[in-house]
Design a protein around this nucleic acid. Structure first.
Lengths: 278, 278
DNA sequence: CATACTAATGACTACACGGTCAATTGTCAA
DNA sequence: TTGACAATTGACCGTGTAGTCATTAGTATG
């Protein structure tokens, strides 16, 4: 298992520097100090590696901003926290963010394209729920436009420190984007993106998580973990999934236990949604 | 010469569908109904083909929007015409636009990266001149932010019809973006992107700084500063420039000391690059 | 120490790519 | 019809790739 981590870390560095296609398995294994055969003990193919990387980081990122949006009590700070967390995350995982920016979104296989599309949708969902909470009906017709603008800000401003390694004042960046977003939300009148348009985009790619899928993911997580409070919490949560019996407060506590564990963020996110707990 | 046109057209289709790396010369020539040898009569290499494509379309696009911005007499229509022309062009040359969106900006060679950067700069220049004409001093500090927002709108909204082939009401799109842009221009107060930041982006691509130049800049910085930890750090870093002797960890620490100092950002940036420290 | 088992290796295969060039075909003036 | 020249071909080359597997090294057990 540790081998898998090592490969993912080292491969990430190379992918960010040279791109996915341009990096050979040989280079990766050299960089890890292992043999080529060992690589194929951890991953069935090079494609499986890139999928694992994308899952790992996108889950973490989605879970992070979802948590922020659901746990910030003060409406006045919500947007700021969202932007701050987002860019902090981009900054921390800049190697991965670079890959996402640079790689030809669709020249991978179809499966990966849908996967990325779905993560994109999850993020959009978080953004939309934030918009709804802050501006409610006031911006109902305009919510998709607003979400698109927010995504546009995220994309364009992140280039600044991903392509060029510039020193960034995260606080100022977040504040300036809050202002922009707030201005648009409160004064826009013309909506371009309608419900219909969104439906046309989503149509072919609907996919809901079933209980079984969540259980499966949680179980996989449990296997990979060392004995700890977090592992115990996950096991208890798994039982709760199959046979709900505990008080919501207990469930919430268990979720809080695993929230910060890097490998549990995605599971925590799915569980939070499943149990309907903020 | 007609052969060259044919190859460019057919190759464009394949690149848009599969990406540049994933398309072989054999596939291109098959698609053209010519032999592989014939390809190399028109282009010295596959790289030369992609360069030709990028030049062809970027020149056209840059020239198009430049013309619109310079020839629209009526200020009231300027923004609208800009957006309308832009998206019309994206739509007309959607195959090429797709390539631009999808291709790993830097996994080509360095030459191509600079080339794209320069086209990007040309477009930014057009946008900035438009902002200047419409909002003049009113938005002077905010012009770069405004330009970034406009580029963000262009990127994000164009995805709608590049990735998903949706029918687009160009007129509504342009009008809605004009409203957004105008709102931001007239009400923003917080600027994130300063002249200094823009300089940092442009500098390293023009030419690599020599050691002497860096020393000179650092020395100027030291002179201008009052006695402080930051000044001491800078002095130590200057010695390190001339006679490398310290451990990387120490260098990194010194850089961290001056990172937040407003007048040191540029020097810190150059030093980070010089010492190869993230 | 011997045995059984797992983890790790790297030479190897099969293949696809960009690019070359001797050989072939097409063209047209004499 | 001939011959000189230009245009075009596609088999071929060197290189580098993803992925395999017989072999070896390492480790735990009786």
């Amino acid at each position: 298992m540790a081998k898998k981590q090592l490969i993912m870390e080292k491969a990430l560095e190379l992918f960010a520097k040279q791109g996915f296609e341009a990096t050979s398995v040989q280079q990766i294994t050299d960089h890890c100090g292992i043999s080529k055969g060992a690589f194929y003990l951890s991953f069935k193919s090079k494609d499986e590696l890139i999928v694992a990387l994308i899952d790992h980081f996108m889950r973490q990122f989605t879970a992070d901003i979802d948590y922020v949006v659901n746990h910030e009590q003060n409406d006045a700070d919500l947007l700021y926290d969202f932007y701050y967390t987002t860019f902090q995350s981009f900054n921390k995982h800049s190697d991965f963010a670079k890959i996402l920016m640079k790689e030809p979104t669709q020249s991978f296989n179809e499966e990966l394209f849908t996967k990325l599309h779905n993560y994109n949708k999850s993020i959009e969902k978080v953004i939309l729920s934030m918009i709804d909470r802050l501006y409610g009906e006031q911006a109902n017709d305009l919510k998709y436009d607003l979400a698109f603008c927010i995504k546009g800000f995220m994309n364009t401003y992140s280039e600044l420190f991903l392509l060029y390694k510039l020193p960034i004042d995260l606080d100022l960046l977040a504040r300036s984007l809050v202002e922009k977003t707030d201005l648009l939300a409160k004064n826009m009148t013309l909506s371009f993106i309608s419900d219909e348009l969104i439906q046309m985009i989503d149509q072919p790619l609907n996919e809901e998580r079933t209980l079984d899928q969540i259980v499966e993911i949680v179980e996989k997580n449990i296997e990979d973990m060392e004995d700890s409070i977090e592992k115990e919490s996950l096991i208890l949560l798994k039982h709760e999934l199959l046979e709900p019996s505990q008080h919501p407060a207990i469930v919430k506590g268990l979720l809080e236990n695993i929230r910060q564990h890097p490998h549990c963020k995605w599971a925590a996110y799915l569980l939070r949604r499943h149990f309907g707990i903020k």
